[in-house]
């Protein structure tokens, strides 16, 4: 079919190089451009917020303080007092994913969180960090994590492998959740937009009227995608907190 090449819903995920010949040389990708933009936006937000340091915050300062307190609250509630030292990491992770998700929603922009290599690397880092923290706090006692307290002895041979598998599957579920959500949203957008083109080229005037349905779906989807953008960043950050909590407190 001729249209199929015209409407390639997956083309938007194609990596290219950015920043011209220099970028090509160092393999700086279009996804990295968006990462850089996200980091710049976050830094700029704080630079603006810190320029005034007003007692009564303005809009930008309010936004920075709100995000600070939101993540701070989350870290305090989930990890506890020991979580303070992980707060900058959780904040960086949350802000980076959130701004990345939102940037990806704009036309012609690239959603770097739709790449499993990116989310996988983040999730793997979180996994390695929480495991290292577990051994740091408890030494070899961290292995007790795999045998929950209050379980009868005869169940342990069954339970310990389950616990190990669920522990090892954490980076997979963490990375796939974010990657699949963002990818799915972007694919749906393009698929519905493709339907509109197909309807118009296939049915003419009738198709133009009928195309209102996928257009409406896309409008609704846009709202949903903004929700998903925030929700997935939040879920990623909360689960990271939860894994760190497990590492520090062993359940």
């Amino acid at each position: 079919m001729a249209q199929e090449s015209a409407i390639n819903a997956l083309g938007q995920f194609q990596l290219t190089t950015g920043f011209g010949p220099v970028g090509r040389l160092v393999e700086f990708t279009n996804s990295n451009e968006m990462m850089l933009l996200a980091a710049a936006i976050i830094t700029l937000l704080f630079a603006t917020a810190l320029r005034h340091r007003a007692m009564v915050p303005g809009r930008m300062q309010g936004l920075a303080e709100m995000s600070y307190e939101f993540v701070h609250q989350m870290v305090d509630d989930t990890i506890g007092h020991e979580g303070r030292r992980f707060f900058p990491f959780i904040f960086t992770l949350f802000a980076f994913i959130l701004v990345g998700n939102i940037l990806g929603l704009f036309p012609y922009f690239f959603a770097f969180t739709s790449h499993i290599a990116v989310t996988g690397a983040l999730a793997l880092f979180v996994f390695l960090l929480s495991t290292a923290v577990g051994f740091w706090y408890h030494g070899l006692g961290f292995f007790k994590f795999f045998s929950p307290p209050g379980v009868p002895g005869w169940l342990l041979p069954l339970l310990i492998p389950i616990e190990i598998v669920s522990f090892l599957s954490r980076p997979i579920s963490l990375s796939v959740r974010l990657f699949a959500n963002i990818t799915a949203g972007h694919v749906m957008w393009e698929v519905f937009a493709g339907f509109m083109i197909m309807l118009v080229t296939g049915l003419g005037a009738v198709g133009v009227v009928a195309a209102i349905i996928p257009l409406g779906l896309n409008v609704a989807l846009t709202a949903l995608e903004f929700l998903v953008a925030f929700l997935q960043a939040y879920v990623f950050a909360v689960l990271t907190c939860l894994y760190l909590h497990d590492a520090i407190h062993l359940h």
């Binding site: 290219t16 393999e27 990708t29 850089l36 980091a39 290599a117 690397a121």
Partner: peptide, 14 residues
């Protein structure tokens, strides 16, 4: 190669 390269750059940016 870009799939892996973006992760390296991400590590630097982050």
């Amino acid at each position: 190669p870009l799939t892996g390269a973006q992760v390296v750059w991400m590590a630097i940016i982050m």
